[in-house]
Amino acid sequence: MIYKKIVSGLFVALVFGGCSQVAPDIPSNGGSNVGDSDALSSQTVTIDENNINSNGGNGLNSVNNPYNSSSDGFNSLYFDFGAYSISNNMQSVLAHDIQRAKQTSGKIKIEGNCDEFGTDEYNYALGLKRAKAVKDAIVSEGVNPSRIVIFSYGESNPVCSTMSDECYQRNRRVDLKLAR
């Protein structure tokens, strides 16, 4: 008998103890407040950097490639999705760029770019890896590494914007130009 009472008591305690979300007590005197929210009126600034030149490159494209976004006689190299190694079918392009680098003097800027797929932080890193792969290939052929500056633009510098495999392919690239 005592055992049944204990079990029943446990049952009641657990069931009603679990239902413990009590409706909130509302103060009977409403809490009227006709104050003003001054904190919301703080004005924020707008900084205008429209006069800043963000490292645009100028110069002629020397190759009959309408998609070439490099300049100063260099050709762009293209990459597979997610990849940053230079593929076999880009070797002739690379050879051209190495030759061009040896013909020029001054600093060379190598810019890595990506398609818009995935987050931009990852794509900035991927673009940087692409740029570094090209830099390493050029340096391995005797170009002074101090001449080369690499930069990643991630998704920020597309040459096209349609949502297609062809456009994504065109944006997965490295551009080369002379730094100014």
């Binding site: 707008t46 900084i47 006069n51």
Partner: peptide, 29 residues
């Protein structure tokens, strides 16, 4: 991004009904 190599930094309320540019021009990300 606004154009290639150009961007804006914007503040908004959580519904995006309010938006205000904080940095305009250049490439700031």
């Amino acid at each position: 991004y606004t154009t290639a190599k150009h961007s804006e930094i914007v503040i908004a309320d959580y519904t995006f009904n309010y938006k205000k540019v904080v940095i305009r021009g250049g490439l700031n990300l």
